[in-house]
Design a protein around this nucleic acid. Sequence first.
RNA 1: GGGCGAUUAGCUCAGCUGGCUAGAGCACCUCGUUUACACCGAGGGGGUCGGGGGUUCGAGUCCCUCAUCGCCCACCA
Length: 848
Amino acid sequence: MKLTTTYEPDKYESKVYALWEKHDAFAPKHRGSQDSYSIVVPPPNANGDLHLGHGLTLALEDIAVRYHRMKGKASLLLPGADHAGFETWVVYEKYLASLGKSRFDYSREELYSQIWDFVDKNKTNYLSQFRALGASVDWGRYTYTLDTKIVNQAYKTFEKMWQDGLIYRAEKLVSFCTYHGTGFADIEVTHKETKGYLWHVDYPLTDGSGYITVATTRPETLLGDTAVAVHPDDARYKKYIGKTVTVPVVNREIPIITDEAVDQAFGTGAVKITPAHDQNDFDMAERHSLPRISVIGHDGTMIDPSPEQYIGLSVAVARDKIAQELVDNGSLRQREEITHSVGHCYKCDTIIEPLLREQWFIRVASLAKPAIQALKKDAITFYPASKKKQLISYLENLRDWNISRQIAWGIPIPAFQSSEDPSEWIFDTRVKEESITKGGVVYHRDHDVFDTWFSSSSWPYATLDFPDGNDFKNFYPLSVMETGADILYPWVSRMIMLGLYTTGEVPFTSVYLHGLIQDENGQKMSKSKGNVVNPIEKVHEFGSDAFRMGILSGETAGSNRPYTESKIVGARNFCNKLWNVARFVQEHVPKDTPQKPEIVSAADHWLLNKLQHTTDAVAGLIETYRFSEAYNAIYHFVRDDFADWYIEASKGSANPSMLRFTLESILKICHPFAPFITEAIWQQLGWSSELLIVSAWPDIPKAHTAHAKDFEEIKQIVTESRQLILAMGLKKPQIEHTNDIVDAHKESIIRMAKLGDVVHVKQGRGLQFISTRHPVWMHVTDEEMSHYKDTLVSQRNEQHSIQSRLKQRLDNPGYTKSAPEHVITQTRDQLKESEAAVQLLEKELERF
RNA sequence: GGGCGAUUAGCUCAGCUGGCUAGAGCACCUCGUUUACACCGAGGGGGUCGGGGGUUCGAGUCCCUCAUCGCCCACCA
């Protein structure tokens, strides 16, 4: 079948994907190599649409997997989707609000099953989006984060930790969003610079000998104060140590204590201590065995031990009212404006309240230790390398991980509390039951669910059926974990810790982190800014292949980068170039053309040389995850070497076997990047019965470098001819030469340079070329040449300066003594070339 | 406060272990409708590689320092 003039992606993409699926081409199979290669896709939110970041992720992962598949390895790209606990919960709450309902209208069980259905309906979007992006994922292994095997793995991990004493339940401060009604891990809190006031409040000494002034940004929390702290060395307050003060408003007597943590320079140097509502105060209270008094509730209003008139008021209102009361009773000394950083909910921007809550915590230090060791031993290669160091220092400073979440959407925590002794908890997986009986005692289930990251941190091995599955044996540890740099801490760090804890091995041997894709102005994309680019729209507009290559072009591991549509346009144009190259080749390759290339001309040698170089470079670059550079190498080979030179040179006399072999090789090395168009061309050509996707990575026969160099000379002659023609405004001029190799390429040179003729002579006339070793002349009149004098002069001057630089270098004894031989040789050659050029130029100039 | 990274052509970025007469894409200028392709081809202009200092025969590349920008972590009573 004959190819059309332009490539129309939507005519081929879905058919090609269906063809792959029909042949089960995505399933990992050994094809010549005993090795395997494995990636699990970081599961996107099952409820949402894919964004540009997913598009980039899938492109990069798919390129790596397609390449290794062609290298003959059993290669797996495992797809999945995330229930995305809190994320989906937020979406669903909004949906409920649109119906005029709220989470308080339903039980947790009802909510769970509603959300299950809600997600199920939207899940199909993302399946088709994976296909549109060309991801060669093995659909048979598709895993959802709420699949039984994933849930069971979370239970097993929890149980093992429980038995190993790594899980504990404690009343600690939890970062709590009072709007969403759930706690977070420290890492999920967004800190923002916020304007506020620093209030200076007098706390009278109980013995009546005066007062001590404390500074606070949160006067309302004084209702829960249990001490005032000063630095032990602070001379101003030495005399007060051991005394007590009375808390204004509530008139509670509290001690004045000393602690190194107090900063003498900040505020008044005296701090009120509210252990139930501030992490530092909590820590200090631990050290000094101070009581904790909670005065703020989970809904963000003041609660019981607060004086009656405050109960039920929001924190903000209570703050104003306390401030007024302090003014009224004369204890407010001053109020200064300050900017300080305040934790906010990353979804709803509500100020995070540190609240006392009994929750499940993981002792992280003992998990972090082996992870740190593994990282220090380089068990995992990081792209970019700098992330390793960052991760180590993060792991060295971890606080215990709060894994309880007070939302309905997630995996229920398999823990039950004794109805007889509230301090007694047991592990049990009968989470569908509200309460269970064991040994005659009734136990009630914890209503909380796991932090999503807890279960998703088992993703690398849980998806592979740890511990007994074949997949686990064949594909673990994963070859690479490719994901966003923003989830290095919340996800990658925990996968490493849990992987080592559960399997005894690192979960992956490399980590590739891509940066954020910003909008074209370098701003973060967000729905509220309205600057979000939908990858699927771009796929429809430019084609999936163009999207993949455009989105990865210019990509460097770890760094953020603006979205550049012109790169997708460029990639679309490149696809069209591929298409038309194939059209040309198809026309010039008869049916009986041998598959093996017959290497005849200098151009053949030259092209094979380039092809081999490119193929090796692309392989090496993909193996080291330098995708953008690999794409560049292909791009320039196809456009510059093959299309602009070899095909142009072929127009006189084509070598069908070379055209065929080169096109096939190009389709292969392009395939990981542009899977649809390459497979579409491959199928249209019909030269092979196998699919391109499972064909072998090309093996390029050796060419002779000397012959290849001959073609370089031809290129020089053509290029210089074009330059002279343009510079002097010539029409179909004639060139003269003395060389047989030039004769052999006569027709090509005439066509490519648009010459009148190429004549073999004994001694040429006109202007001699300077860029080629062969004597070649442009046959021009002195009149025509006179327009060119200025150029000749500037060329000569330039050569002079090059020469003096090279001479200086060679005259330097330090250089000739220390520089490696090949560098010196190179310099000598450059000097010789330059000298020859100057000689020619001087000769030409003599005529004027 | 600690850490990491960036600063190279108008724009977006390559340049890995020092050898560069500093590259690419886009944009720009000139020329060209040659039947694979105008989603094209040919030719060209444009950079003292953020400033300063150092190491070296040689520095965009290594070291120090300053400046600007970005990100992350901690603290901010």
